[in-house]
């Protein structure tokens, strides 16, 4: 269970130095509290900046990430604040069977669209030296903000997610533009299809199936939206790039409530057909000539998607190519 230790909020303006001082006080307090117990281990492998809506509930997501990639989290909440304010906390957890708590730092900054431009100067002072910086733009309004370039220049990796964003087409175009400009951007819509892609790849590990690849001429994707979302588009672009030729692509709307979720993928050619489809109990069934099995395929949480991205420190060249072609 994660536990938080709070420092007093920094009230008058926000100075990075003052926040770091607050953090130091938090650590000192934690050290005192844990004296005699197993102690506290301060862990940090990167700085992760999250720009989120004011009331976004990301506590669980951050706690999950912390277990995998201990970070200094800087959460920028976009609300109606007429001036920016901030406070520092430490998030701790006790690994099962251990006596020592592992703690990460978390700094919350409240800002509004009007004051967002004041934030980058604070962020620059809050980055953990010599470690990577990842910027997770959960509230895409930040990308439209005049200070967006300043935010982008701070990070070595930028993560966005079009799911749930009304103007996802604009965001997709923006991702494409940034990727073309060399900005190291990642889109969680692409991350969501890793397992689909992996299953497709797995179908063709066997030399007999590999030989059948050249006869594939149609992709059929069943998805749960009136029109194919970014995930379906990325998937078809990726398949066509991998095969290096034209294919017929059919998008079909399946009955399902989860936005843009891919339900079913069919790869087809004369006399052959491969199907991967979601089945009950969090599984998918995989069928093809001589193949019929099931694999675990539960829905991934936001934190799991982010964790996949955080494990890739640099650019994903495959994504860079796919996004330009999607």
């Amino acid at each position: 269970m994660a536990q938080s230790i709070n420092a007093e909020p920094v009230k008058a303006g926000v100075q990075a130095e003052a926040l770091l001082k607050e953090l130091a006080a938090v650590w000192a307090e934690l050290g005192k509290e844990q004296k005699g117990a197993g102690g506290v281990l301060r862990a940090c492998s990167l700085t992760m900046i999250a720009i989120v809506e004011k009331d976004a509930d990301i506590g669980e997501t951050l706690a999950d990430i912390m277990r995998d990639q201990p970070c200094r989290f800087v959460v920028v909440r976009l609300g109606e604040a007429d001036r920016i304010s901030a406070h520092a906390t430490a998030e701790c957890w006790m690994p099962f069977g251990r006596r020592q708590q592992i703690c990460c730092e978390r700094i919350e900054i409240a800002a509004s669209l009007e004051t967002l431009g004041d934030v980058p100067s604070v962020l620059r002072g809050l980055l953990v030296p010599d470690l990577p910086v990842v910027l997770w733009i959960r509230d895409p309004r930040a990308l439209r903000h005049p200070s967006a370039d300043e935010f982008l220049s701070i990070a070595q990796k930028i993560v966005v997610d079009p799911r749930g964003f009304d103007d996802w087409k604009w965001l997709s175009e923006e991702v494409k533009r940034l990727a073309a400009a060399g900005v190291p951007i990642a889109d969680l819509a692409w991350t969501r299809i890793t397992r689909w892609r992996e299953l497709i790849a797995r179908l063709f590990d066997d030399p007999a199936s590999l030989a059948a690849l050249s006869s594939l001429d149609e992709i059929e994707i069943h998805h749960s939206s009136p029109e194919p979302g970014p995930a379906a588009r990325y998937l078809t672009a990726w398949i066509r790039i991998c095969l290096g030729r034209e294919l017929r692509v059919a998008y079909l709307q399946a009955n399902h409530t989860e936005t843009w979720q891919i339900q079913h993928v069919v790869l087809r050619g004369p006399g052959i057909e491969y199907r991967i489809r979601r089945a009950e109990r969090g599984m998918v069934s995989v069928e093809g000539p001589g193949i019929a099995n099931r694999v675990v395929f539960r829905l991934l949480k936001e934190s799991e998607l982010l964790r996949e991205e955080l494990r890739i420190p640099g650019r994903d060249e495959t994504f860079d190519r796919v996004v330009l072609a999607a």
């Binding site: 890793t194 892609r197 992996e198 497709i200 790849a201 063709f204 590990d205 030399p207 590999l210 690849l213 050249s214 398949i239 991998c242 095969l243 290096g244 996949e308 890739i312 994903d316 060249e317 495959t318």
Partner: peptide, 14 residues
């Protein structure tokens, strides 16, 4: 695919 390797391989992620 003609080279005999799986064209869908993605060593970075898979």
């Amino acid at each position: 695919p003609i080279s005999g390797s799986n064209p869908f391989e993605d060593r970075l992620r898979f």
